[in-house]
């Protein structure tokens, strides 16, 4: 692993996680969650776990984002309160 890259990306990941759970618009929360998953895939590639990185990029950033968008489009878009 490369320590400065690792630290920088983990910091960005924490910031995106906080933004994800504090967004009132569920659609933007879902897109932020996709960005989070993709950055996590990059972190795992950089930690030499390439197969986990592939799976996360396909399943975490791809399929679960699609599922969440489908669920948000069938229910309410805005979070109340």
């Amino acid at each position: 692993m490369i320590v400065p890259l690792d630290l920088l990306m983990l910091f960005v990941i924490v910031v995106i996680a906080i933004a994800t759970i504090s967004a009132k618009d569920l659609f933007s929360a879902v897109i932020l969650f996709g960005a989070y998953s993709f950055l996590m895939a990059v972190v795992w590639a950089e930690m030499h776990s390439i197969d986990v990185s592939f799976t996360e990029a396909a399943v975490g950033a791809g399929v679960s984002t699609a599922f969440l968008i489908a669920a948000v489009s069938r229910t309410a878009r805005w979070e109340k309160g």
Partner: peptide
Amino acid sequence: IGFYAMIAKDNLIKKLIGLSL
């Protein structure tokens, strides 16, 4: 962060995002 979202958020989809986190 994920645990906080699961407990404190009122919205069910937000709770599921917290579970994933």
